[in-house]
Simulated assay, not measured.
Amino acid sequence: MSVLVEFAMFPTDKGESVSPYVARIIKMIDESGVPYKLTPMGTVFETETMAEALKIIEKAYSLLEPDCNRVYCVAKFDIRKGKSGRLVQKIKSVEEKIGKEVSK
């Protein structure tokens, strides 16, 4: 099974720039070993189970909770049985159809 998750999580009570808080979350995802891609508007990662995906989101919150009074999170899930490696494959599929590399 493949669980693709696109999410963003950050404190809303820490001013205009929240990159130090986002960096905590990205470091944790990187250390978890799951494939991920950081984008300007969020992060996409892939796990094999919904439980693993939710655990990562819960860990992300636990990194902010001690010193943040208000945290915003939005998450989207694409769950597909019998597939894996979709973090890369979905982009390749579109690129093949248009005959051009769209991701760099």
Rank of each mutant, 00 (worst) to 15 (best):
Met1Leu: 05
Ser2Glu: 02
Val3Arg: 00
Val3Asn: 00
Leu4Asn: 00
Glu6Asn: 13
Phe7Cys: 02
Phe7Asn: 00
Ala8Leu: 12
Ala8Lys: 04
Met9Val: 03
Met9Asp: 00
Phe10Leu: 15
Phe10Met: 13
Pro11Met: 06
Pro11Tyr: 09
Thr12Pro: 03
Asp13Asn: 14
Lys14Pro: 02
Lys14Tyr: 05
Gly15Val: 06
Gly15Arg: 06
Gly15Lys: 04
Glu16Tyr: 09
Ser17Asn: 15
Ser17Gly: 05
Val18Glu: 03
Val18Lys: 07
Ser19Thr: 14
Pro20Phe: 02
Pro20Cys: 01
Pro20Met: 01
Pro20Lys: 02
Pro20Tyr: 01
Tyr21Pro: 00
Tyr21Met: 03
Tyr21Phe: 13
Val22His: 07
Ala23Gln: 08
Arg24Asp: 10
Arg24Pro: 08
Ile26Lys: 02
Ile26Val: 15
Lys27Asn: 12
Met28Ser: 06
Ile29Arg: 06
Ile29Asn: 07
Ile29Met: 11
Glu31Ala: 15
Ser32Val: 06
Val34Ile: 13
Val34Ala: 07
Pro35Tyr: 01
Tyr36Asn: 01
Lys37Ile: 03
Lys37Ala: 08
Thr39Arg: 12
Pro40Ala: 13
Met41Thr: 11
Met41Gln: 09
Met41Ser: 09
Met41His: 09
Gly42Ser: 10
Thr43Asn: 03
Glu48Pro: 02
Met50Asn: 04
Glu52Leu: 07
Glu52Gly: 09
Leu54Thr: 11
Ile57Gly: 06
Lys59Leu: 11
Lys59Tyr: 08
Lys59Met: 11
Ala60Asn: 04
Ala60Val: 01
Leu63Gln: 08
Leu64Ser: 03
Glu65Val: 09
Asp67Pro: 08
Cys68Trp: 10
Cys68Val: 10
Asn69Met: 05
Asn69Glu: 15
Arg70Ser: 12
Val71Pro: 02
Tyr72Arg: 09
Tyr72Trp: 14
Cys73Pro: 01
Cys73Asp: 01
Ala75Asp: 04
Lys76Leu: 05
Lys76Ser: 10
Phe77Gly: 02
Phe77Val: 00
Asp78Leu: 12
Asp78Ser: 13
Asp78Gln: 12
Arg80Met: 06
Arg80Glu: 04
Arg80Trp: 03
Arg80Val: 08
Lys81Trp: 05
Lys81Gly: 11
Lys81Tyr: 09
Lys83Met: 10
Lys83Glu: 14
Gly85His: 11
Arg86Gly: 11
Arg86Ile: 03
Arg86Lys: 13
Arg86Leu: 15
Leu87Pro: 03
Val88Asp: 14
Gln89Tyr: 08
Lys90Asp: 07
Lys90Trp: 02
Ile91Lys: 13
Lys92Met: 11
Lys92Glu: 14
Lys92Arg: 15
Ser93Glu: 15
Ser93Tyr: 13
Ser93Ile: 05
Ser93Trp: 13
Val94Arg: 10
Val94Asp: 04
Val94His: 07
Val94Met: 11
Glu95Trp: 12
Glu96Gly: 12
Glu96Lys: 14
Lys97Ser: 12
Gly99Lys: 07
Lys100Gly: 00
Glu101Asp: 12
Glu101Leu: 08
